[in-house]
Design a binder for these strands. Structure first.
Length: 328
DNA sequence: GAGCCGTGGAC
DNA sequence: TGTCCAAGGCT
């Protein structure tokens, strides 16, 4: 079986410790002029995050990526740490009922990701010999793993060469290359082509990916970019154009109060914090509007985030915690 | 492709 | 206060 979580042939933890490209950038292909300044900046300014350390396993990196979907790093850190202590391998999580993943998801948001991660653990255990797949196409078959996450895991856990196109990278490229303040609402083919064209050689591709993401997260931020601290400010098309404001349709517009989402969140919080099945009255007490409440509750059950018992009580799916022998 | 899926911090 | 945003994915 090998080491828990699998042996990463590529150490994510070494990403910040070299500024590479010595060979490839001498090649004839169109050079990525952003590569050297971004890599140097990353070596100097990258955050120290536990999933980037040398001891990180493919499993721990996969967990971090899914937790980080639409969720800030500072909120992921404590939950990721607890998960890694509790479930250091896919097999450890796979041995639990899915409800335990949901319970220990806490308030990270989008709790179906907890269910996805549990399903990932079982798929890895039952279909892939207990090891997180290294191949991008195989990663894509895992629940909750889409284009971005597959590229990120293949790149950061296994050293693959992929365009890793998250919201940070899209924003950096929109500004630096296209000269626009924000990228389009949905990822376009043009963005993928651009990201592919900027990919350095195999040796540098993973560092480049994490470095551009980090630049977007720390410097080239959505609201108040710190252009004075930017390693590519002299090449940034948007800054050189005088930072023209975003033109286009409003990019958001979702209220939250009173939505089904808020209702689902309230209901699930009750189940998470309970240590056993809860009577329906306990759920009724956290949301006044009955039609919406029933719809939301049915939705949670349909999504596999809750289940009804024969006596009409509700709980997280799959029963109580599985206690190891002798610890009850 | 648009809408949906949580939560909390910043401004 | 309300709005925007945070390492997306799925239907």
């Amino acid at each position: 079986m090998g080491k828990p979580g699998g042996d990463p042939p590529f150490p994510y933890g070494s990403l910040g410790k070299h500024v590479g490209g010595r060979h490839y950038r001498r090649g004839v292909a169109k050079r990525n002029l952003l590569l050297t300044p971004v890599l140097e900046w990353y070596a100097r300014c990258a955050r120290e995050l536990p999933w980037r350390e040398p001891g990180a396993t493919p499993w721990s990196i996969l967990v971090s990526e899914i937790m980080l979907q639409q969720t800030p790093v500072v909120r992921v850190l404590p939950v990721w740490t607890e998960w890694m202590e509790r479930w250091p391998t896919p097999a450890a999580l796979a041995a639990e009922p899915p409800g335990e993943a949901v319970r220990h998801w806490g308030r990270l948001g989008y709790p179906r990701r907890a269910l996805n991660l549990h399903a990932c653990a079982r798929a890895v255990t039952e279909l892939h010999g207990g090891r997180v797949p290294a191949d991008h196409a195989t990663l894509l078959t895992l629940p909750g793993v889409g284009e971005y996450t597959a590229a990120a895991v293949a790149s950061f856990a296994f050293g693959g060469r992929h365009a890793v196109l998250d919201t940070n990278v899209r924003r950096v490229l929109a500004r630096a290359v296209r000269g626009e303040e924000y990228p389009p609402k949905a990822t376009t083919a043009a963005e993928r082509v651009l990201a592919e064209s900027l990919l350095p050689g195999p040796e540098d591709a993973p560092v480049w990916a994490v470095a551009v993401m980090e630049l977007g997260a720390l410097v080239c931020t959505a609201r108040a970019p710190r252009c004075a601290d930017c390693p590519i400010r002299d090449r940034c098309a948007w800054r050189l154009a005088g930072k023209p404001p975003y033109e286009g349709p409003a990019r958001r517009g979702q209220t939250y109060a009173g939505t089904d989402r808020q209702c689902r969140g309230r209901l699930l919080a009750v189940l998470r914090e309970a240590h056993g099945p809860v009577p329906k009255a306990a759920l009724d007490s956290v949301w006044d509007e009955p039609v919406q409440r029933e719809r939301a509750l049915d939705g949670l059950v349909a999504d596999g985030l809750a289940e009804v018992l024969d006596d009409g009580t509700y709980r997280l799916p799959g029963g109580p915690p599985a206690r190891p022998p002798g610890t009850g």
